[in-house]
Computed example of a mutant assay.
Amino acid sequence: MTHLVARTGRHQQRYEEGCRLVAGCIPYRYRTSNETSGDKSNDSVEVLMINSQSGPGLLFPKGGWENDETKEQAALREALEEAGVQGEIMEFLGFYEFKSKTHQDELSPEGLCRAAMFALLVTEELVSWPEQSMRQRRWLTIPEAEEHCRHSWMKKALQEGFSKWHASKMQHDNAENQSPDSADRDTSS
């Protein structure tokens, strides 16, 4: 088994227009209880959050987007390092700006950050991951996640990005399942 190690340092950190660029994701899954079996509505979706190291509240995995990776690769790396999950990026949710009190430097003296956020369908939860000694992970419903979210920009990404995208996806999936030619596709082999 290979041992995973989190990247550290800022020598490869990307900046744009005085903002530190970060990438992150909202990891999600569908509940598999008997009562919601096969149900992929907003009621059955859960999102994964991790504890903050600098105070109360929960976070979505995110971190510095580095020069040698795409924003998607950075988001996948952060999900693995901080939350110990792997999966498939399903949607780009948008860019969200915020100020960081802990990440002020000469290239971003005011701590301005721009986060590229993605919806990540979790396919694997690792037993061991780089930041497991510092992080606990918690699966929550969307209302629970909104209540426990530490940062307003992350709550906005959840509400305006993820929830709207997921509702639209469910509407589209349901419409496809109801279309007359979907029965033809199902029976043809």
Rank of each mutant, 00 (worst) to 15 (best):
M1G: 15
T2E: 12
L4W: 13
V5E: 15
G9F: 03
R10N: 12
H11S: 06
E16S: 07
E17H: 06
G18N: 08
R20L: 14
C25E: 05
R29K: 14
N34Q: 01
E35M: 07
E35L: 07
K40H: 14
S41N: 02
N42W: 04
D43C: 12
V45E: 05
V45R: 05
L48C: 03
S52P: 06
S52N: 10
L58S: 02
L59H: 02
G63E: 10
E66H: 08
E66D: 13
T70N: 09
A75Y: 11
L80Q: 09
A83Q: 03
G84P: 07
G84F: 10
G87E: 04
F92D: 01
Y96T: 04
S100T: 08
K101P: 13
H103Y: 06
L107H: 07
S108Q: 02
E110H: 10
E110W: 05
E110S: 07
C113R: 08
C113F: 01
A115Q: 12
F118Q: 03
V127Q: 11
W129L: 04
W129V: 05
E131A: 06
R138S: 10
W139S: 00
T141S: 12
P143D: 03
P143A: 01
A145V: 01
H151K: 13
W153V: 05
W153K: 02
K155N: 15
L158Y: 09
K164T: 07
S168T: 13
M170K: 14
A175L: 12
N177H: 13
Q178S: 12
P180N: 05
D181R: 14
S182M: 15
S182G: 06
S182W: 15
A183G: 08
S189A: 14
